Amino acid sequence: MSHQIRIVGSDVCFGCEPGETILDAALKAGIEMPYSCRKGVCGNCAARVEGGDFERGTVSAEATPPGQELLCQCRPRADLAIAPSSWRRLEPGARKRLQLKVYRNTLAAPDVSLLQLRLPAGQRAKFRAGQYLQVQLPDGERRSYSMANPPHESDGVQLHVRHVAGGRFSALVADLQPGDLLDVELPFGQVDLDPEAGGPLLCVCGGTGFAPVKSLLDDLAKRKSARSVTLIWGARDRAGLYLLEHTAKWARALPNWRFVAALEDGAEAKALGAFHGRVDAAVRALASELPRGGEVYCCGAPPMVSAVRAACVDAMQLPAERFHADIFVPGPAG
């Protein structure tokens, strides 16, 4: 028997089947709330849960605000009421399953492929900056990758794929040729960033966490945004900043722009004039210089995002609700 989930302060109610998470049930019902990883790590889907009993799956304690639960891990045993930070109805047909054609496959770094895919003739990909797609593998498993192109470039998508030892999809990427087809579904994710907001924005990313940041910043540049934007991009060495030249475009397009490269290799950091150390150390070191009263968007591996979250709270006194995370969690898509 399904349980009824009500959104506090509204007349919206949807069913949740036994064993189904609240987030999955909401998405199936056409209700979208903030979410990203769907694996209990990023904390984006945190919400207050009222009344009734539920099963709590594996969650990251530091990503779960006090008095809230992660909806991607909550499986109700009774009717419940939830109070998400925001919600909206999905447009009918907003999510599509498509066969995309490989247009170009190049190496941006020894361990990063830039995969340019084209949609079928006459079709467009409708998505918001920072969202991701799921690639379906031959055996039906899925892998998630952020769209690196901005929404106005809607006749195709660009993916940044890091080559990971044992990675199911990254192992296939090297052999993909122009004309090859990939089965994908898009869009997924809700980063909850208002593109029209005027407050300061700090973006922090590591490695290919640059992909959704690129989409966000290209979108702001297209909109001729005047908001203060700072990007801190970290890597082990210079090769990890695989599209460094692209930052010059934002310097020209965004009037209140600052870029900080953070490299763990001391010699290369010195040669590039970059910050020597990890991105969370850069946030702490530069905290007094960073604009306050805005939002932080952070993307990368779970330990990096966790460290940056702590740095923003400790050194910048950033309210938890202004920290938006897109965490790259390996393995099958949630």
Rank of each mutant, 00 (worst) to 15 (best):
L115T: 07
C13S: 10
H3I: 07
H160M: 00
E153T: 03
R142S: 07
R168H: 14
K126H: 12
P195M: 10
D53A: 14
L107W: 00
A121G: 00
R278L: 09
V8W: 07
L186W: 01
D24E: 15
E289M: 11
H276N: 13
R223K: 04
I31M: 04
P18H: 01
A301G: 09
P302F: 01
L80S: 01
K126L: 14
R104L: 06
K224V: 08
P178N: 05
R142E: 11
L115F: 00
R252C: 06
V191C: 14
G9E: 02
D11Y: 10
I327G: 02
V161A: 09
Q190W: 05
S86K: 09
H160R: 07
L241N: 00
P303H: 00
G167H: 02
E196L: 15
S306W: 05
V329F: 13
G57F: 04
T64D: 13
N44A: 15
G140M: 02
L244W: 00
V164P: 12
L98K: 06
R88L: 09
H246E: 05
E50H: 15
D326L: 07
E295Y: 09
S144N: 14
E55V: 15
D53H: 13
P178H: 15
K126M: 10
E264T: 13
H160C: 00
L119M: 14
C298G: 04
A121K: 03
C16N: 06
A148W: 01
R95T: 11
A267S: 13
G52L: 02
S215T: 08
A125E: 03
A253T: 06
N44R: 15
Y145L: 11
L241D: 00
R252H: 05
E295D: 10
S36Q: 04
A165S: 06
G266A: 15
K224Y: 01
M316G: 07
D175H: 12
C72S: 06
G206M: 04
G130H: 08
V164T: 10
V204M: 01
R75N: 00
G93L: 02
R278N: 05
A253Q: 11
R292S: 14
F188E: 01
I22V: 15
A333F: 13
E141P: 03
Q99I: 03
Q116F: 10
A239E: 11
A239V: 08
F169C: 06
R292A: 14
E62M: 15
K270N: 06
L286G: 13
V260E: 11
L90K: 11
G209R: 11
P92D: 02
V329Y: 08
E55S: 14
V229G: 00
A47L: 10
V191N: 07
D219S: 00
K270E: 13
L217Y: 04
L119V: 07
V308K: 04
H152C: 04
D155C: 03
V279M: 10
K96T: 14
L100C: 11
M33D: 05
V213A: 08
T208M: 04
Q68I: 00
G207A: 03
A226Q: 09
P66C: 10
S215K: 03
F323A: 07
